[in-house]
Structures are given as structure tokens and as C-alpha cells.
Design a protein around this nucleic acid. Structure first.
Lengths: 205, 205
DNA sequence: TGTACATCAGTGAACGCGCGTTCACTGATGTAC
DNA sequence: TGTACATCAGTGAACGCGCGTTCACTGATGTAC
């Protein structure tokens, strides 16, 4: 991030990092191109050497976010070891860990109002995250007696929804501000109860 | 809404309605005071006869939203009849129905970035919604064997999170855009599985 | 019933601001000879 | 090793725009006598 005089060296990533910090502290709407440029030690016009404009910068941030997100969940999933159940729960925890550790990315991805089809790279990265999450749900759903097995996509939709809801409502300044419990606990117990409802956890856990 | 010449008649509510329509179509960020004024057939300055400013207008919209939201859930709850379970499920459905029917209100309440403590009236209305939701969860949780009963606030946090997550992810243009199922179904089955996990529904339903 | 007057909702012009974006430019870098 | 030159990342000034907000005002309304 050290300036090397006239030429910056790695302005592209420096702008992304600056924007990320701004989004974290001001929300995705409070973020401005000019601020990001200034905080990277550069003129607003310089941004246009690296991005088509404001939206393109946000899209690139979201794309990076989805890549990290996918990597994190993939790593947590660990190929389904030691069991589909453990791997699934780890994936869920990874979801929340990501939202916590990288709030700027999370906001760019889910709260910036950007279209996930803004550009093909972003769409691809988002799709990859979705696939990794779905795969984890699918592997687990194999353990449900076929008769009472919901479609895997329904299954993953439930968990994604609960995870996202927990982040939005209890990991932020929003309604549940004075959250009754740590978000991690809310999500963990919520998923636990849900899995019990599917017969994937013993009823008396 | 008909103009009566110089004096509008009920500009205050007309502004709210106009803002609501704008928020619905452009999102809570795309909404501007000037547009709302124009679409109510009035000069931007006129807004200041009725609201302290832009944020105050949004706060009032959110407040009205929470009142309607609370009323709707309260009505669906119907005093816990015919059973705590049925009443609870009705409350959950009312949540989604509200988000669907009044997207402008929902956005003002949960996506505008406004603080729920912006003013006391808003805080009170939001708190009322929370209470009604919590009460419904609490009544139901009485039916859970005490040993495996989670705190009622945890319980309602789970359901609120899932409902909110479903709205944000599957009722909008966001990630799950091409939602695999109608949001209503996702929420309904999700809550069903969750309640089964609590032993509130028979395991083979 | 008619007139005088206080009230106050809305006007219209103006403001300062900061935004995203453009443009012709300049100075640093690295490569060819 | 030194010089000439092409490349291109960043500058700085300017733009048009629309925003939220303010201000002195005006014209409609309703009430007192």
C-alpha cells in the first residue's frame, strides 16, 4: 500500500481494499468512488484506469467476496469428512464466520443492491458459492429416508435463509440489535433444531 | 389524493404514499425527497411543513409499516386459537404476506438503513412488532417438554431469521433470484421441519 | 350575511455540496538499439 | 552502459447533475365580530 511516487504499483487492489474499508464503516450506500480514491492516495480519475466505474468496482469486490466465500465453505466442508453431517454443520459455521470476518465483502455481495448478473465473472463466482453450499446439503440429504426427504435445493434454501437472516438481523445494528444471544449460537441451535426435524440428529440431543 | 388547488388537503399522507411507491420501485436508496414531492404534485420545500427532513419521512414510513405489521401478525395470531401451533404458523405466514403485500414498507423497515431508534414512536412500533412475534413463540414453546425447551426468545429469533432470510433471498431480485420454489413454500416447509425438530409436530408429517 | 384579519400550507428561487465522470495532459517506467 | 522512444498510470481541472435544505413570500382558509 506504500506509494511509490507517481506510479502506485498495485492501485487496483488498493482501491478494492479502500472501498472495502469504506463499505464496512459506512455501508454499501455510503461508499463513494471519490472517497475510495482519496483513501488510496489517488485522484478519482485514476480509478477509471482500472474500473469502468463505480458499479464495476463494487461488482469486482462482490466477485472477490464470492470467491473467498466459496473457498471458505469448501474448505470447511472438507470433502464431506468426517461425516456428511459434521461437514454440513461446518459449512454453516463457515457461512457465519465469513459474514463476521469480512463484513465489507458480505455487504457488497448481499446488500449493495448490485445485480449478480452485472458481469459474467461475478455471476460465475456467485454460482460457484451456491453450488458448494448446495452440494453440502445434497450429500447430507442422502441420509434422510427417501420418503420424508425434501428436495436438496429446498433444504439448502432453508439453511441459507436462516443464516442470512441471522446475519442481517442479529449480526448488525438492525432490529435485533440488542440480540438476545450471540449470532453464532442462534444459528447453531437453529440449524440443530432444523436437522433434528429432518431426523438427522437424535431427537433428544 | 385529488389536488384542491393551493392547499393539498392531506399532503402528509400523500407524501408517504408517494415515497412508498418510489421505494417499492427504486429501493430505499433510490428514493429521493424531491421525487416524492413531485409525485405528490408539490414543491420539495412543502415537505418540510410535515417532516423534519428526508430521514424523518422514512422513519414515519417505517413506523406505519411496523404498526401494520404488528396488526397483521396480531390478527393472524387470533389470540392463540384454535391452538398455539396453528396460531404460530399463521403468524409466520402473516410475516411473509406482509413482506409481499407491502414491499415498500418492508424495505423502509428493514433495508433503508434507518435506525429503529431514530425516534421514540418508531422504536415503540418496532418493539410492539417484536413483542407480538415473541408472544406467539412463547405460547407455543409452553408445549415443549421443559428439558428440551429453548428460551422463547431464541425460538422466535430462529423463525424471524428464517422468515427474513426467505424474504431477502427469495422474494427479491437477489441471489436466489431464480428461486427453486415459491417463497411461501420455502418458509412453510422450513418452519414445519423446524417445529418437528422441537417435537411440536409429529415426526412423520 | 359580510368584512377584516390571523393562520399557515405551499411556492419558487436559490444555496452549497459532493457526486460520478470526461478530458487533455504529464511524468515515470521499461525496452530497443 | 547510455540514449531515444513508446507506453501507459496517474494528474488536475472542469463538467453537469441532482440532491437536501433554507428563505422570504403569497395566496387560500376559516374564524371573530
Amino acid at each position: 500500500m506504500s506509494k511509490r511516487g507517481y506510479h502506485h504499483g498495485n492501485l487496483r487492489q488498493a482501491l478494492i481494499d479502500a472501498a472495502l474499508a469504506l463499505i464496512e464503516s459506512q455501508g454499501p450506500q455510503g461508499f463513494t468512488l471519490s472517497d475510495a480514491a482519496k483513501s488510496a492516495g489517488v485522484t478519482p480519475a485514476a480509478v477509471y484506469r482500472h474500473f469502468a466505474g463505480r458499479d464495476d468496482l463494487i461488482a469486482e469486490i462482490a466477485r472477490q467476496g464470492f470467491e473467498i466465500f466459496a473457498d471458505l465453505m469448501d474448505h470447511a466442508y472438507a470433502g464431506g469428512k468426517p461425516s456428511a453431517l459434521a461437514a454440513f454443520e461446518a459449512t454453516g459455521r463457515a457461512y457465519l464466520a465469513f459474514a463476521r470476518k469480512f463484513p465489507g465483502y458480505y455487504m457488497a455481495m448481499f446488500e449493495s443492491g448490485i445485480s449478480l448478473n452485472a458481469n459474467p465473472d461475478l455471476a460465475r463466482a456467485a454460482e460457484r458459492s451456491r453450488m458448494i453450499f448446495a452440494r453440502s446439503a445434497e450429500a447430507l440429504s442422502q441420509h434422510i429416508p427417501e420418503a420424508k426427504r425434501p428436495p436438496a435445493s429446498m433444504f439448502s434454501a432453508h439453511i441459507w435463509a436462516m443464516a442470512h437472516g441471522v446475519v442481517e438481523l442479529f449480526s448488525r445494528g438492525a432490529p435485533g440489535a440488542r440480540a438476545p444471544f450471540p449470532p453464532e449460537d442462534i444459528l447453531e441451535t437453529g440449524i440443530g433444531i432444523y436437522l433434528r426435524g429432518l431426523g438427522l440428529l437424535p431427537p433428544d440431543a
